[in-house]
């Protein structure tokens, strides 16, 4: 081995050893960027699986679903979930422009979650509705003990065969720099057909 090569090898070995000695301090000072930051929102059926969602509903029964959020945003976050109810003509959130639905929320939940923490809640609901001819009008929606006046009307859907309504949940995230809640561009829903047990 030539002397210059030997010298270079020795220098690299010393620098490497120096970095190893310095690594505990570097670990304290340097904060490596985490992975992708996002929040999850999900809805599960009564068996706690992504199946058997309530669809054909009747006025005299209580239904349940599980609603959940997961935080992967890298820190403590403050969420708000709006519960909304629509017929087939009411607006849904605009996913392209990130705008929430114009409908007034019926109910809300507030959740604080740390990084990698989950929140899940059992949501029980029932309906009070009337069917007259081709018209179905839902007057009340009871969620978690709150009797809410909804007054939603829909016509018989010839194509799909039913009176269809949608119960959906919007996820909002608190933004401290604005400072206010902003729609987080995520929502989950279940379709409900109000014809069961009151067949035409």
């Amino acid at each position: 081995m030539r002397f210059e090569d030997f010298k270079l090898l020795y220098m690299f070995s010393c620098v490497g050893l120096g970095l190893i000695i310095l690594s505990p301090t570097l670990a304290v000072v340097i904060k490596l960027p985490g992975g992708e930051r996002f929040s999850e929102l999900w809805i599960l059926g009564p068996s706690h699986m992504a199946e058997d969602y309530p669809f054909n509903v009747s006025g005299d029964k209580l239904y349940k679903v599980y609603l959940g959020i997961s935080n992967h945003m890298g820190g403590l976050k403050y969420y708000r979930i709006y519960v909304k109810f629509r017929n087939q003509t009411d607006p849904l959130p605009d996913m392209v422009n990130g705008m929430p639905s114009d409908l007034e929320p019926l109910l809300e939940y507030r959740v604080f979650l740390r990084h990698n923490e989950n929140w899940e809640m059992e949501i029980r609901f029932s309906f009070d509705y009337d069917i007259e001819g081709n018209i179905c009008s839902v007057s009340k929606l009871v969620i978690d003990g709150y009797a809410l006046d909804v007054d939603k009307v829909t016509e018989w859907d010839e194509e799909k065969g039913g009176f269809h309504f949608q119960l959906f949940f919007e996820l909002w995230l608190y933004n401290a720099s604005v400072p206010s809640f902003r729609f987080y561009d995520r929502f989950v829903w279940i379709w409900l057909n109000m014809t069961s047990a009151r067949a035409r």
Binding site: L76, Y78, R80, P105, L106, L107, E108, Y109, R110, V111, F112, R114, Y146, L148
Partner: peptide, 19 residues
């Protein structure tokens, strides 16, 4: 954080009762 979560539930209940 546990206290904050509890307070958050209370505020949600307050808004729901208001509705």
């Amino acid at each position: 954080l546990a206290k904050l979560k509890f307070a958050g539930n209370l505020l949600a209940d307050a808004y729901n009762a208001h509705r």
